[in-house]
């Protein structure tokens, strides 16, 4: 297990480094080669202190990232819980009730919700809050200074909903697809002919055998989820997603690199955990 962990850690670090280099190339290409900026990524002058537009508290880059990260973590936490709990449970249920096309039915609501533009949804919530509840709509309108800060959780939920909708729909279909493929194998028919019950075949054989493949799906939605954090900008939520968009609009490399590396770090961690778990269960696994 230790050997597998260190092996995957080295691979993850190499990939993270490669992705980081690609990020620098992307910034240089878009801002300097295609755009008309003369501030190259390798020049020290291109990175200054935190501009006042990003934070009016006069904090350092570390402080800014800490503040933004604390705001984004609840959103990401809600998204991930939704994707893993709903996606996996409903996916298994969809495969179990496959004769009723349950996977399609269960994912339909999420897929339909994913058709709404996420930025429009959060703006609509802001308008509704303003007109019907007579309270400020956008996330930066009011700050709770005393008592439990339920408002920040409400804001996090509003952002998590559109971000996780498409991911949950995809996860349900993918989990169900993996199980249904396993169910179509010849040994399942053999077990059925031998007198095994449906439940026994499904949970004790099919589910157990397809566990590595199911776990391998766990990181597929993470990049899309972290990418959806840019809807924070539409809701004026001070998180890492809005830091990326604001930094791009201000042409501030420090903010772009900090927020992008943070997103890539999250994806790397999930890929590492997935790789270790899957290889622990099935050492000859190939992605």
């Amino acid at each position: 297990m230790v050997r597998i962990f260190f092996h995957r850690l080295v691979v993850a670090l190499i990939r993270f480094g490669a992705a980081g280099m690609a990020l620098l190339v992307l910034i240089e290409l878009s801002f300097c080669v295609i755009g008309d900026s003369d501030r190259h990524v390798w020049l020290r002058d291109s990175y200054g202190p935190v501009p006042a537009e990003l934070s009016d508290k006069g904090v350092s880059w570390g402080g800014l990232v800490h503040d933004r990260m604390s705001a984004t973590l609840p959103v990401l936490g809600l998204c991930l819980s939704g994707v893993f709990l709903v996606g996996y449970n409903w996916g298994v249920l969809g495969a179990r009730l496959r004769r009723f096309h349950a996977a399609r039915l269960l994912s339909a609501a999420f897929s339909a919700f994913a058709c709404l533009p996420g930025f429009w949804f959060v703006v609509m919530v802001a308008i509704y809050s303003y007109f019907h509840w007579q309270r400020p709509g956008f996330a930066n309108d009011v700050v709770v200074e005393e008592g439990p800060d339920l408002l920040s959780w409400w804001n996090a939920c509003i952002l998590a909903l559109p971000a996780m909708a498409a991911a949950v729909g995809w996860q349900i279909r993918a989990v169900s697809g993996v199980l249904e493929r396993e169910l179509s194998r010849p040994y399942v028919r053999g077990l059925f002919a031998s007198g095994y019950s449906d439940e026994d075949i499904f949970y004790s054989n099919v589910f157990r055998r397809s566990l590595p493949s199911l776990l391998a799906l766990s990181d597929r939605t993470i990049p899309a989820l972290t990418g959806s954090l840019i809807f924070e900008y539409a809701f004026r939520y001070p998180g890492m997603g809005s830091l990326l968009v604001e930094s791009v609009l201000l042409q501030n490399y420090g903010g772009i690199i900090a927020s992008s590396l943070w997103m890539m770090g999250w994806v790397s961690i999930f890929v590492l955990i997935k790789d270790c778990t899957v290889r622990f269960l099935k050492p000859d696994w190939t992605s």
């Binding site: 990939r15 993270f16 490669a18 992705a19 690609a22 990020l23 992307l26 910034i27 290409l29 878009s30 801002f31 295609i34 755009g35 008309d36 900026s37 990049p223 899309a224 972290t226 990418g227 959806s228 840019i230 990326l244 968009v245 791009v248 609009l249 042409q251 772009i256 927020s259 992008s260 997103m263 890539m264 994806v267 790397s268 890929v271 992605s287």
Partner: peptide, 26 residues
């Protein structure tokens, strides 16, 4: 593709379109 998978596509698009001046062609 495995290394590029780490970078969210939306973030790539925001950086690319924003950095290159924000035009339809970009």
């Amino acid at each position: 593709s495995r290394a590029g998978f780490l970078m969210p596509s939306m973030a790539v698009l925001v950086i690319f379109t924003g950095g290159s001046g924000g035009s339809l062609v970009m």
